[in-house]
Amino acid sequence: MLAAGRLGLRALFPTRCIACGDAVGTDFGLCGACWSEATFARGTVCDACGTPLPGESDTAILCDDCLTHPRPWAQGRTVMHYAGTGRDLVLALKHGDRLDLVPPLADWMARAAAPLLTPDTLIAPIPLHRLRLLRRRYNQAAELARALARRTGHDYCADLFTRARPTSSQKGKTRDERHANLDGAITVTPRHAALLQRRPLLIVDDVMTSGATLSAATEAALSAGAEPICTVTLARVAKAP
């Protein structure tokens, strides 16, 4: 009966590709065309940002970008490259009010972040300044982080970080300009500082480009006593291997 009911529902409401809307065979899946346009971070990846790397290695290795610009966090992972389907999904979530994407994307992030999680890891998102939050109506990083914590069973703190001041868009800025733009902009919310004493932390964001935003949050958390600090993103802006 239950199986028949499901078949009937699928006949009326066929499952759709989460990226383009074409019919697919499984819930929360990608069609063949969108899958071919997605570069997932699998196999050998950079231990600091998660970008996929060619070849195989039994030891932790870093991509050229993370070797040139060492990260303040201990380890990082990502789900996919910010290109093709990856870019489409990020933009749909960020600017297209596609909150229906949060559950499947958080599942992907849970798989990517699994090597970084310990039983007492605290999960927290990169914050939006209140003025930008009013315009956007929700923080996509917070939505992903909340769903990720629920999926993995870890503690979650939505407002662990605070945007102390509004910042201009990072688009079009150089690496140095991005870091200068974020200097002092992210702080640990004082009432939550005690949560971080010698505690593992996983910081969640939708996209990593230069790493300036994640670095600003990491440095604030390090000052508050968190250790070790890891990061996970939905997408990484990088060249495909």
Results as ranks from 00 to 15, higher is better:
109 M>F: 06
171 K>H: 12
113 A>G: 09
171 K>L: 14
165 R>L: 08
129 H>N: 04
165 R>Q: 10
98 R>S: 05
35 W>P: 01
21 G>V: 02
15 T>H: 13
121 T>Y: 07
131 L>R: 14
196 L>C: 10
143 E>V: 06
135 R>A: 14
64 D>Q: 14
148 L>Q: 02
10 R>N: 15
146 R>K: 12
60 A>K: 08
197 Q>T: 15
213 T>F: 03
144 L>C: 00
232 V>C: 06
221 A>P: 11
13 F>C: 09
231 T>S: 06
186 I>P: 03
221 A>M: 11
196 L>P: 01
105 L>K: 01
158 A>S: 09
7 L>I: 14
83 A>N: 03
82 Y>I: 08
11 A>N: 00
33 A>D: 15
76 G>K: 03
53 L>E: 06
182 L>H: 01
185 A>F: 10
228 P>I: 04
174 T>F: 08
52 P>L: 02
145 A>E: 01
181 N>S: 07
209 T>K: 06
45 V>C: 15
4 A>L: 15
212 A>G: 05
238 A>N: 05
117 L>A: 08
42 R>A: 14
40 F>Y: 13
218 T>W: 07
166 P>F: 00
152 T>E: 03
113 A>M: 05
87 R>G: 00
112 A>N: 06
5 G>A: 15
156 Y>I: 10
182 L>I: 11
36 S>L: 11
